[in-house]
C-alpha cells in the first residue's frame, strides 16, 4: 500500500534549509494565532461595550467568518496547494458551508412566517 513512497536522503544543507523554512512557517502560525485571539477579544469587547445589537451582530458574524477562514487555510493547511486532492477537499468543505447557509436562511425566514 505504500508502493508510492519515495524516500530520499536530504543533504545537510537541504535539511537545514527545510528546518529553517518550517521554523519561519511556525512563526507565521503564531502570528495567525495572535490575530485570532485579537478578533475574539474584539468580538467579546464590542458586545460588553453595549453598542446597538443591529450594528454589533453583523460585525461579530463577520469576525467569526474571518477567524474560520484563518483556521481552515492556516491551521488546517488548506493554503498548502501541494495537499493531495486539495481542490476536491475545498469543493466538499465549501459545499458544506453553502448547505449550512441555506439551512440558516430557511430556518430564520420560513419557520416563524406570518
Amino acid at each position: 500500500m505504500s508502493h508510492e513512497t519515495h524516500v530520499e536522503v536530504r543533504t545537510q544543507a537541504q535539511y537545514e534549509y527545510d528546518k529553517a523554512h518550517s521554523k519561519a512557517h511556525m512563526r507565521k502560525q503564531v502570528v495567525n494565532f495572535a490575530i485570532m485571539i485579537f478578533l475574539t477579544f474584539v468580538a467579546f469587547a464590542s458586545v460588553v461595550a453595549g453598542f446597538p445589537a443591529t450594528f454589533i451582530a453583523p460585525v461579530i458574524l463577520l469576525l467569526a467568518g474571518i477567524q474560520v477562514v484563518l483556521q481552515l487555510y492556516a491551521f488546517m493547511h488548506l493554503e498548502d496547494r501541494s495537499t493531495h486532492m486539495v481542490g476536491v477537499i475545498e469543493f466538499f468543505i465549501w459545499s458544506g458551508g453553502f448547505l449550512a447557509f441555506t439551512f440558516f436562511v430557511a430556518f430564520t425566514t420560513i419557520i416563524w412566517w406570518g
Binding site: 458544506g96 458551508g97 448547505l99 449550512a100 447557509f101 439551512f103 440558516f104 430557511a106 430556518f107
Partner: peptide, 9 residues
C-alpha cells in the same frame, strides 16, 4: 458541517 448546520438552524 451539515450536521452542525442543522442543529445551529
Amino acid at each position: 458541517t451539515v450536521l452542525f448546520a442543522s442543529v445551529f438552524a
